[in-house]
Design a protein around this nucleic acid. Structure first.
Lengths: 337, 337
DNA sequence: TTGTAAGCGTTATCAG
DNA sequence: CTGATAACGCTTACAA
């Protein structure tokens, strides 16, 4: 019943050979007598020997563990994590994951904890609260790879995998303009969120390009939450002249706006159009369905893991790289007149 | 720039004390001279010393890593994983995660890989394909804790955290009956999925209790996918007399049914009522909103982690335990006449 | 209070 | 082809 895990030492003793021979045989090294190898393999099989990776990690100074910290597990990050896991698996790595719940304190604690688990580095997407990234810089100083994913910060020299957020927003707003919208609101999140800023830039760029005036009262920076987006939208809908379209920088926010619009009894898109960001599956199921800018989350996750591993293997002299993915606008009922 | 991680050996040499003294000081052991301790702490702080958990793991024969394998990362599992992570964190554990994508082959490979990472055991939710669980039994034989989560199997003596699935289904169907539905279809998944069977039992129980006849043509076992559910629902809607209600054992399937019903131009609930399972957020946002049986995923995840850790600490003589959570029926438009 | 030394399970170097 | 032996970074008797 109670079986302690067998070690190569045990196998060696049992078979009357040396530890090193067992080690070599088990790892398919060339210089082992075929017969000896067969005996060892057979016995290992019998006792269901599993190499102790902790010991291997200690001697090889590597754990084949990739640390991942995400702010939450919504559709976007779940897909990304799947991509990371996929690429990690292919390269023989395993993913150690942790969620910050959009809290800076949690992110800090998780970073400590996860690095303590001897992961070889970190793929991280910053929480919406995070302003200070000393905790990440420390890792870089230790010469361990860090890859920023989606939520990055300009303030650091590290590899990144991001979407061309400005372009995504630009496409969305340009689309609304082409549909004849004149008063397009911007529903954003915390100002320290890089993605929020980039998307705001895209919004502004589209307006300027169309020679439309920028109305500050239509630009709102709320929190990165559905409920807050609901509140902020309600405020927008109480303006003397309400916007005729809302561009939300995330589906999470778009959903809040959607509910506010419905609760106000307004029609979409007749009274007000709406475009979100992320293209979560739910967007196409709602009635009316909601337009959204889609990002290839799964592919981005894969890329992040690949970049990470590449960086890991390249040793010291690695030049940080930024991989930019292209957004795609999915046009649906909420912006189709 | 390039800093190698400092070790206690280095600190010891630098400070002219012995390795053991450093080790003791760093771990707040009593028998250390306060002054010596201060010096060590201070220096450790300066060089940002981080204990090497791999080495500690090797000595202590524990990694403080919990392996988690889930079939996918939909809302239910994402919430559950959050719960696991939360409880793990509180106890000083870290989560190593892996998704099987509902594939038995993947589950097998991931189990190998993840156990190789020296996690102390596994919290697992079986893939919908899994029939054989020898890979799990092996872990148990090694005396490592295994906790089944949601998707379990009767065929093993291990701890489990599950919902009272039969009750959930029973409640849903009973509700439909009370609303006057006469021909209630059951939209299920693979027969080897325990949750599918339990929910079918609940469905049958409710019908029998109401003295309603069981119509085999209304009981369908498809695959655990939205698209397949769509197809299966279309078949149901082609029957000479179509059902007046569908109970889907998962929101994923309910969504497929929802789309089929819409595409057929039928009204919900007037022509056909619908109840799902899991209570994903999307269910309340659709129009009509869809009724669903909700399970406390987050709490269940927490419980799984707690059970796991408890089992870990209790050593050999641990009696497997099954924790059963209570479902709650959320009634919405799709079944409100 | 501090130091020495053995040991955790592997890998790798160097002789045989 | 095989076997000692040191080393990885840390903990823990046992000594001093």
């Amino acid at each position: 019943m109670k079986t302690k895990a067998p070690t190569i030492k045990l196998i060696a003793k049992e078979l009357g050979v040396s530890i090193s021979t067992v080690s070599r045989a088990l790892r398919d090294m060339p210089e082992v007598n075929p017969e000896t190898r067969r005996r060892i393999m057979k016995y290992a099989e019998e006792v269901d020997y599993q190499p102790n990776m902790v010991a291997t990690s200690l001697v090889n100074q590597n754990s084949r563990l990739i640390g991942v910290i995400v702010p939450n597990m919504d559709y976007f990050f779940a897909s990304a994590v799947k991509g990371i896991d996929e690429a990690a698996m292919e390269a023989g790595y395993t993913v150690v994951i942790s969620q910050s719940n959009e809290s800076y304190g949690r992110e800090l604690a998780n970073t400590q904890r996860i690095m303590g688990s001897q992961v070889e580095g970190l793929i991280v997407s910053l929480s919406s609260e995070t302003q200070n990234i000393d905790h990440i810089k420390k890792i870089l100083k230790r010469n361990k790879p860090v890859v920023f994913f989606d939520r990055d910060t300009p303030d650091i020299r590290a590899s990144k995998v991001v979407l061309d957020n400005e372009l995504g927003a630009y496409k969305a707003v340009k689309h609304l303009i082409s549909k004849g919208c004149k008063r397009i609101a911007y529903l954003g999140a915390e100002k320290n969120l890089q993605i929020s800023n980039s998307r705001e830039q895209g919004y502004l760029k589209a307006l300027k390009e169309a020679n439309m005036s920028i109305d500050e009262s239509l630009i709102v920076h709320g929190k990165f939450e559905k409920d807050n987006a609901y509140l902020k939208t309600m405020e927008l809908l109480r303006l003397k002249t309400i916007p005729d379209a809302i561009f939300a920088i995330s589906d999470r926010l778009a959903l809040g706006a959607y509910m506010a619009i419905k609760d106000k009894g307004l029609r979409m898109p007749e009274d007000i159009a709406l475009v979100g960001f992320n293209d979560e599956p739910i967007m196409s199921l709602l009635s009316p369905s909601i337009s959204s800018v889609s990002q290839p989350a799964f592919e981005m996750g894969k890329m992040a893991a690949r970049l990470f591993i590449e960086q890991l293997n390249s040793g010291e002299e690695f030049e940080p790289r930024t991989e930019i993915f292209q957004p795609e606008l999915k046009i649906r009922d909420s912006s189709t007149f």
